[in-house]
Write a protein that binds this DNA or RNA. Sequence first.
DNA 1: GAATTACTAACTACCACAGGGTTCG
DNA 2: ATCGAACCCTGTGGTAGTTAGTAAT
Length: 419
Amino acid sequence: MSPLCDFCGEQRSMVYCRSDAACLCLSCDRNVHSANALSRRHWRTLVCDRCSAQPALVRCIEESVSLCQNCDWTGHGGSASASGHKRQTINCYSGCPSASELSRIWSFVLEIPPIAESSCEQGMGMMSINENSVSDNWRPHAENSSGADIPCDSMANNVENDDNNFGAWLASTSTSDVHPMSCSGDQPACSVDSTAPKLCFSDTKDLGISKNESFYDDFSVDDVDLTFENYEELFGVSHNPTEQLFEDAGIESFFETKETSAANSNCQVNPAAEARTIQGTCSNNPLSVDSAMSNPGTKADSNLCFPAKEGRPALSLSFSGLTGESSAGDYQDCGMSPALLMGEPPWYPPGLESSSFSPASRDSAVLRYKEKKKTRKFEKKIRYESRKARADIRKRVKGRFVKAGDAYDYDPLCQTRSC
DNA sequence: GAATTACTAACTACCACAGGGTTCG
DNA sequence: ATCGAACCCTGTGGTAGTTAGTAAT
């Protein structure tokens, strides 16, 4: 909870690096993140003025403070007067912006001390600033191949990207991260893979989406970049592709609660989904992580259960490999809100919890989901070219690798059998 | 309409081993 | 504190076997 820089321990910390899980002064931020190309990709944002430990997501205009989701929730969720405070989304950035650049993106911060210029300065072209604002709430944030932003409205109207709405909603219900799910750490897919649209939204209160039924009309999942790109770095184990998240449970499970009684609203069990990553979890605890964590050292699947509310289904996410030894920081690094993970009430997009949608919209959404499920392809990503090159020349017997020198029936180099 | 069968698509395990990371002396 | 050896773990592709989904009967 120290407001001092985690690196130098002398200066007051100003920015939070999610990848490093560290609060840094601007000087150290610059030094640390100019070290190499990977560190330059780290997304940073202001440190919460309240807890001085979490990344701030919003700026309360009335109180002139930057708040993380926890503190925003605590401070603005309680009283009616406070909840009416005008809040502004805080931009995050990567690269090594100068003080003037920071002043520009954080105009509300009065004092940004000068930063020593470094070699990183010449890499300013790499700097990326997440330009969200209150008026841009709930709009998929895309980048084209040149790194320039694509107008979100055009993207929202793009049928090919219609799934992002659902992904954004899902991500927002499970994380407060400025870059939901995939946007954390050094993985290229996070900040430099400009071919895939990235969802960037951070305002946690004023997402005016649910009243628009087109949101549900565009309800499907597969194009959304929900994959935990750096899952292994986060959890230390391999994972099933997140695309499988809805493979078996089916999106229908998310629509099937309108008739659900309050008694079982927390326990939506889809038989087809029991064994997979997303499932209804019988628990009265909004977060069943605790129970799954109760056995330290075991790699039990942890289920995050979002309790059903009227008009919105119970939702649980399973994170294989989360162990009881995992810290809150680990969860936050994976994009999960500590509030969510630590038992505080989850956030629902306004309206989702109280509104319902028509059966026609539901049927349409389900139909669209099924259609896309039929046609989608998940391309394999090669992480280690050297290993691929090795595998490409390995001799095999019935597809299996064989020891060097042993008999084989397939040699990729010969393209023939037993050459 | 329900039950059974046939077919197709998708998924998973298996194998050896280089290379990265960790532990220990 | 540093170094090297030993050990552990991961990921890579083609095939076979299994499972799930769909269509036909």
